[in-house]
Design a protein around this nucleic acid. Structure first.
Length: 1033
RNA sequence: GCGUGGGUAGCCAAGCCUGGUCAAAGGCGAGGGACUCAAGAUCCCUUCCCGAAGGGGUCCCCAGGUUCGAAUCCUGGCCCACGCACCA
């Protein structure tokens, strides 16, 4: 702290304090301490991303210190964080007599400081933990750190190589220049970031049981053993399988290229090409690649680029002709390929080959459109449906010189015509002809137009097309189906084979163009298994989802998942127990570790990397016992080197906590991690231990924009804490938005939230003038407060925090402001105390630090974090008081409306309440409405029985008509409300002074049938129950 | 293309499932007022159009439909966001 002068208040501030002491007015909470917030300049600074420079100069700091003598959020936050830690406030153990609640979030990956994205997903879970704790649950909320996989290794390697971008990232995160070198070692990352994340979370006020924290990978032996156990069990269950697997592959690095390793081609995946074999008379096979095998029925010729070089290669027992690139690719795709020698394209032109599928002799013709980097460099020609083929054919047919050069039979070539093979709605028999003519494509070198044409024909043909009569037994079959069928049949008859290519151009970070490799002995998790999927759907069906809207997405993902390669040869992680060469991939090792948390405090011994001797030698028997209840305790204990008591305690601890009640995450994990989590739970655990709830949120935005490095608006948790402190940040996160839309952190809201919290603090601990006589407004406020409590509670249960904040904070504060105004600045002492108590507890899950501080000062017992969440007292809900207040405010609104329209500056305002005969009709109508829809004549008959009614039967009829219309759709509670204010005139008389103050004029109140009323404009006759007549002069 | 979610006043955003109480909550922005020497903060009022009496008109992406009645239900269309994998 810099040296500072003794806080000195201005004359004005002193005067205000004096007023307060003397009970001049209680004011609304927001009025009392408005001065010191100074949030303008800071709010502006907050709009910039945190570049940790000294944006708050000494001047600002000094002023702030002087102006805020009583409440320093940072000090308060530190104070209570220390108090919680000292009291072990959030360390949870099994207590069989109490209901439990178990929340967790996916552990974050340790390749850097955590930013607000993680903070948001974490806090949405943490709010729930704190809320549930206050509603009486024994709450477990642990947090671990993920180190498995490639990114840490990759980043460390890039630091070692001094890659500028990587160094820039470290600098951006705030790593001092001198420290950067250390990050060349992956272990340094694992030392630094879990500790840093822990500090960030503590600073955030997270209510975590830190005894259960750990890191992943073999660096932490018990966790490593746990993952091995999991994989052996999965293998036993038959959910782990070996198979071939195509991956996008860098031939230079000899490694698969994930999306993040690509310079180009994000999202591209391996696609299957059908290799069609065209025998030459000598038995060699020309091999063409296609993604449209169903078009074999329309083949007219084969295309070769006469300028290109091809090779003859021995593949299996056959001799294939294809280009050299294709030979190399096939060698990576589980085929034995031996190149024998070159062969020129030009030498093949003009020969005859037999087309597969149709078994007809066709000519090999020259063309220039073939992409030699894709497929085999040889293409079969289907001019009916392939624009490329059609245009190339036309080019050739027109080109006598070319025909002559290759000694082609001009007559035969010119005789080639497209063969209609597919019928597509909206298209003629020859789509390629149609589109080429429509687009006016003249040459096979007009690549752009041809690509567009191809895409259009392909799309409509694939989804809507049906095979023609000339397609043998596939006649009438949809293209989508026929495609697979043709491929299958040709492969079975040896006329076709398979080749993979990336679905689009992919370039590795090392600038090499990617190919597809088929990995031979890949281990898969069999997510494609239909019976497994069925169980997962079942698990999902019994879960709570927040928001419910995400359910369909989960169901879709469950069906969509195929077998997942679960291990690779690089990266950090647990080795496959039966094959050292494989490392379990990071999404696969992190699916059921929520179970590990339940016993982690014992296994970790207080360290992220366990050094507990017995825990570093765990075998499957231990986990079988603890998680599955298998085996004999004594025997397992003896093997593990742990006492039987501890072992059995761990078993019951697991059974107490499991399954978890809520796991919350960003929506990016829905289609992998969260769904995997379900798969693995159904595979390993009995039904009663399957997850109970998932929460999903969108991606955090700052001021309506996505947070991204390129925009320079990435906020790390530490930056936000420095800028706003924990409570303001938490409040901003709670207010950022519910549901699946991207939540938006609004710095303007943060600024005003900061001052609102300060106002609230000052109000809650301040002194206020009060009174002890009961008034209608007191009942109104208590009633309103209880409704707020009920709404807030319901919103909390649904994880709708923005709504909870609105009900439980903003609306409640607004109600208080109205109450104080209505009460002439003097709240009832008990109401005031109730308000402060309830408001503090409603806010506690969101802003626990300031609430603890208030709680301790208003005499709360223990931590507010452990105090009961407010319960709506139905006995305090007072419909009469609410109706009375509603009548008052709607009358004020009506008067204002009149003043606005007439632009009268009122000297006097008269209010006329309904005459007794209307009250009578109204009462009778309400009575009848209770029994069902009112019949007009019945109402008339009933009311006219009363003395004096017959004389004004006409008026009665017209009012009764209006009423019956009005009440036709009234609900029971409307009837109660309408009946609530028995004596409206008394109501207004009681509040005459208030009305006069609000409306700025004298207010007179009359009953409409009061003979002594003053009614120069004859307004009184318009008065009806619930709507007094008004006269302004 | 497939899947999911969505399009509401100047902007953000609730309501839609369970039709009427909806000219449609709340926030921001804007205007006016109170307080103040003043600014900020705070509080009050206003903020679709018309209106010298609390009223009327037109509205919830577009076009149809169901209904006594539609922001809400149905059909069709247009547009936007996210995901489509082996990776955190």
């Amino acid at each position: 702290m810099p040296a500072r002068r003794k806080p000195r208040r201005s004359a004005k501030t002193r005067a205000r304090a004096k007023r307060r002491r003397e009970g001049g007015r209680a004011g609304s909470p927001r009025r009392t301490r408005a001065k010191r917030a100074r949030s303008r300049p800071r709010a502006r600074a907050a709009r910039r991303p945190a570049r940790r420079k000294s944006r708050k100069g000494p001047k600002v700091r000094a002023r702030r210190t002087r102006r805020r003598p009583a409440f320093d959020p940072r000090a308060v936050e530190r104070k209570w964080q220390a108090a919680w830690a000292g009291a072990h406030a959030f360390e949870a153990s099994a207590e069989p007599s109490r209901p439990k609640w178990y929340t967790n979030v996916p552990y974050p990956y340790m390749s850097g400081y955590q930013h607000l994205g993680f903070a948001l997903s974490f806090l949405r879970a943490e709010f729930q933990s704190r809320f549930r704790r206050m509603t009486g649950f024994n709450v477990l909320h642990p947090q671990a750190f993920h180190c498995t996989g490639l990114p840490i290794l990759g980043a460390a390697k890039r630091v070692a190589e001094n890659e500028p971008r990587q160094l820039e990232i470290l600098k951006w995160m705030g790593v001092p220049g001198a420290e950067v070198r250390k990050f060349a070692d992956p272990m340094h990352w694992i030392d630094v970031f879990p500790a840093a994340t822990t500090r960030d979370l503590v600073g955030l006020g997270a209510a975590i049981d830190w005894r259960r924290s750990f890191i992943t990978t073999p660096l932490n032996p018990p966790y490593d053993a746990f993952v091995r156990w999991q994989f052996r069990r999965l293998k036993d269950s038959g959910y782990l399988r070996v198979d071939k697997h195509p991956v996008v592959w860098c031939p230079k690095d000899q490694a698969p290229i994930g999306d993040h390793d690509r310079l180009e081609g994000e999202g591209e995946t391996p696609v299957e090409y059908t290799l069609l074999k065209f025998p030459l008379p000598d038995g060699r096979l020309l091999v063409a690649a296609t993604i449209r095998p169903e078009t074999v029925f329309g083949q007219t010729n084969l295309w070769i680029d006469p300028r290109a070089a091809y090779v003859v290669a021995r593949v299996g027992g056959e001799r294939w002709i294809l280009n050299e690139g294709a030979a190399r690719k096939l060698a990576e795709q589980a085929k034995a390929v031996g190149v024998e020698g070159p062969i020129r394209g030009a030498d093949l032109v003009g020969k005859e080959v037999v087309a597969p599928g149709i078994n007809r002799a066709i000519l090999i013709l020259p063309s220039t459109f073939i992409d030699q980097g894709r497929g085999t460099g040889i293409v079969t020609s289907v001019p009916s449906d392939a624009p490329d083929d059609l245009v190339a054919l036309r080019d050739l047919q027109k080109d006598a010189a070319l025909l002559k050069r290759y000694k082609l039979d001009a007559e035969r070539v010119r005789g080639i015509v497209p063969i209609p093979i597919i019928r597509t709605p909206g298209w003629g028999p020859l789509p390629a002809v149609e589109i080429v003519d429509r687009m006016g494509i003249r040459s096979q070198d007009d690549r752009e137009a041809l690509e567009a044409a191809k895409a259009e024909v392909y799309r409509s043909g694939f989804y809507q097309g049906v095979m023609n009569e000339n397609c043998g037994h596939l006649a009438g079959v949809r293209v989508e189906v026929a495609k697979e069928e043709v491929r299958r049949q040709l492969a079975a008859s040896g006329q076709a084979d398979l080749m993979y290519e990336p679905s689009g151009e992919v370039v590795c970070r090392c600038t090499t163009r990617a190919i597809v490799k088929v990995v031979e002995d890949q281990w898969f998790l069999a997510y494609g298994d239909p019976s497994w999927k069925t169980k997962v759907h079942e698990a999902l069906a019994s879960m709570a989802l927040y928001p419910e809207a995400i359910r369909k997405q989960f169901d879709y993902v469950i069906d969509w998942l195929r077998d997942w390669p679960a291990a690779h040869h690089r990266g950090l992680g647990t080795k496959l127990p039966w094959d050292d060469a494989w490392v379990i991939e990071s999404l696969s090792d992190s699916t059921v570790y929520m179970a590990y948390y339940t016993i982690a405090h014992a296994l970790q011994g207080g360290a992220l990397r366990s050094e507990v001797p017995w825990a570093s030698r765990l075998d499957d028997a231990f986990f079988d016992f603890v998680f599955l209840g298998k085996g004999a305790a004594a025997e397992v204990a003896a093997r593990s080197g742990v006492t039987r008591e501890i072992l059995e305690a761990l078993r019951s601890e697991f059974l107490y906590w499991y399954p978890f009640d809520l796991r919350n995450t960003g929506k990016d994990l829905v289609q992998n991690h969260m769904t995997f989590c379900l798969f693995h739970h159904t595979a390993l655990f009995p039904k009663e231990l399957w997850p109970r709830g998932f929460g999903v949120n969108g991606f955090v935005q700052m001021m309506g924009r996505k947070m991204s490095k390129s925009r320079g608006n990435v906020w790390y948790i530490r930056d936000a804490l420095r800028e706003w402190g924990a409570d303001v940040l938490r409040l901003s996160v709670a207010n950022a938005g519910d549901g699946m839309d991207d939540p938006n952190i609004d710095t303007d809201f943060a600024a005003s939230g900061r001052s609102r919290l300060q106002e609230w603090y000052a109000f809650a601990v301040g002194h206020h003038a009060t009174r002890s006589d009961r008034r209608t407004v007191d009942a109104w406020f208590l009633s309103t407060m209880n409704r707020s409590v009920a709404s807030a509670r319901e919103a909390m249960e649904q994880m709708n925090y923005k709504a909870a904040l609105r009900h439980g904070f903003f609306d409640l504060q607004a109600a208080w402001a109205w109450y104080v105004r209505r009460a002439g600045g003097r709240p009832h002492a008990h109401v005031l105390a109730r308000f402060i108590d309830v408001q503090t507890r409603l806010l506690a899950p969101f802003v626990p630090h300031v609430c603890e501080e208030i709680w301790s000062r208003i005499g709360g017992k223990g931590f507010v974090s452990h105090a009961p969440y407010p319960v709506a007292e139905t006995s305090e809900v007072d419909v009469t008081a609410e109706a009375a207040e509603g009548l008052l405010s709607s009358t004020i609104a009506d008067v204002r409306e009149i003043l606005k329209v007439t632009r009268i500056a009122p000297k006097r305002i008269a209010i006329y309440t309904a005459p007794s005969w209307k009250l009578r009709v109204h009462a009778v109508a309400l009575e009848m409405a209770r029994a069902g829809p009112i019949a007009m004549n019945a109402l008339m008959a009933k009311t006219l029985e009363d003395p004096g009614m017959r004389e004004r039967a006409k008026d009665v009829a017209s009012y009764a008509k209006k009423l019956t219309d009005d009440l036709r759709h009234a609900r029971p509670e409307d009837l109660v409300r309408r009946a609530a204010v028995a004596d409206e005139a008394a109501r207004f008389l009681e509040d005459r002074e208030f009305l006069a103050r609000e409306l700025g004029a004298r207010v007179d109140v009359y009953r409409a049938d009061d003979p002594g009323r003053r009614d120069p404009a004859g307004k009184a006759e318009h008065a009806i129950p619930g709507r007094p007549a008004i006269y302004v002069e």
